[in-house]
Write a protein that binds this DNA or RNA. Sequence first.
DNA 1: CGCACTACTGTACGCTGTACGTTAGTGCAT
DNA 2: ATGCACTAACGTACAGCGTACAGTAGTGCG
Lengths: 247, 247
Amino acid sequence: MPFTRPVYAPDMPSEQSIATVAPPRPARRSRAPRGSLSAELIIDHALRLMDERGLEAFSMRALAEDLGVGTMALYTYFRGKDELFRAARDRVLAAYTPPSTEGTWDQQLRAACLAVHELFTGRPAVLRLLAESTGQDDFVDVATSSMDRMLGLLREGGLNREDAARAYGTISRFTIGSALREIRVCARPEALELFRSRIAALPAELYPHLADLGPEVLANAEDSPGQYEYGLDLILSGLRHLPSRDS
Amino acid sequence: MPFTRPVYAPDMPSEQSIATVAPPRPARRSRAPRGSLSAELIIDHALRLMDERGLEAFSMRALAEDLGVGTMALYTYFRGKDELFRAARDRVLAAYTPPSTEGTWDQQLRAACLAVHELFTGRPAVLRLLAESTGQDDFVDVATSSMDRMLGLLREGGLNREDAARAYGTISRFTIGSALREIRVCARPEALELFRSRIAALPAELYPHLADLGPEVLANAEDSPGQYEYGLDLILSGLRHLPSRDS
DNA sequence: CGCACTACTGTACGCTGTACGTTAGTGCAT
DNA sequence: ATGCACTAACGTACAGCGTACAGTAGTGCG
C-alpha cells in the first residue's frame, strides 16, 4: 500500500494537482491603496446598490466587490451591517429639508407631506430600512426637522397641543403606510397585472361591492401619488373640522 | 522527508482519530412516523414560532426542530420558505371575519377598522409578512371579505364609486402604517425609553415646536390604540364632509 | 532606521435556504 | 404472502450570508 490518504478529504478529484485547479481565477485583486475608502464613500455605494438591485440582493460581500475592496475592509468603518444601514438611513433623512413654500398653514403642510412622500417613494430601500428597523436602534421619526416643521404648521392652524401631536402621528403613519404600499404594488407592473386578474376572477356573489367597484379600485392602484394626495386631503379636511380648533 | 500532507487539509487536529470525535452527538432523532406531518400542522407551528421568537429568528431548521422532524420534511408540503410564508399569511387573513355590528355606516366601518387593526397588532409576524412581501406574489389586500364589507359600508354612506374606492385605499394604508409603527415602537418599552431620551435631548432652539410638544408626542407614542382611533376618526370626519356625498 | 499603528485582506465558523439522492413505510397487484 | 410502485421523511452537500480573528502591508513618527 504505497500511499493512503488521511481520514479527511475523503474523495478529492485526484486526477490533477489541486493547487493549480482549485482556485478558479479568484480574480486576484491587488490590495487597495490605503486611502481609497471612507465611511461616506461606502454609504454612497451602499445606497446606490440598495436602490438599484433591491434590499434583498444587497450584501456586505456585494458592496465590497462594488467598491473593489475586500469584504472585511468595510468593518473598519462600520461595526456591522446594522450600523451601516442606520448610517445610510440617517444620511438620507438628515440631508432632507422640507420645501419652504408660501401659503396658508394647510397648503404648506400639504406641500411638506408630499415632499416626504416623494422622498420615500424615490428611495425605496431607505423607506424599507425605516419600516423594517427592529426598533431597538434609535428612533428617527421621518426627519426631526420635518417633524418640527409639521408640528409648527399644525399649531399655526389652531390645533391645541394634543391635537397637533396626534395629527402629526396620523399623517406620519399614513405617509409611511402609503409609501410602503406604493413601492410594493403600484410601482411594479407585474404585481398590478396580477392584482387585475385577481379582481376579475372574484366571485361576484361573494364579494358584490368589490366586484362592482373593481375598475375604480384598479384605477387607484395605478395612480399612486393621486391616492396619497386623496388620503392626505381627507385627513386635512378632518383637521379643519376639528371641534377644538380655535380659528 | 518522511511524510508530507497533500495540498488540502492543511492542518487537521491530528491528536486523535477524527471519526470518533467529529460527530458530537447529533442527537440522533428517530425517523418520524409517516403521518406525523401536515401542511396545517406546519403552519400552526410556524405561526406560533414567528410570533414568539420573532420573524428574524425564524428559520426552516428551527421550525423543523420545533416539529421534531428533519428539515427537509417541510419541503414535502411547501415548495420553500416563501410559499410557507404566503400560506401562513393567507390562513390568518382568510380566517378573519369582520364583526357584524349594528349602527350607522360610519359606526360599523369604524368597528371593522378597529378589528383589523387589532388583528394586525395581535399578530406582528403576519403583519410584517404582509408589509414586507416582495409584491411578486399574489396580492391579498388585508382580507378580501373585509375589503368588500368596507367598500359596501362606504357606498352605504353615500360615497360615489370612485370616492368609495379611494377612501378604502386611504383607510387601508393608514391602518397598515399604523399597525407597523405600533409593533415597532409603541409595544417595545426599550424603544419608548430611547425615544423619550431623544426628545429630551433635542436642542430647543433648533426644534422649538418639537421641544415644546415633547410631552404630548410621548404620550401619543405610549397610547397606540388611541392614536389609531384618533387618525381613523379624522379620516371618517373627512369622509363625512366630502362634497360629493349625497346624504 | 525602526517601531507602533492601522487600513486592508484572507481564512474560517456557524448560520441560512434548498437541490439532490436515499431510505423506509404503505397500499396494491399478484 | 410477496413483490412492487409510490412517496413521506431524511441526510448530505453546496452556495451564500455576516463577521470574528489573525495576518499583512503601508504610513507616520521617534
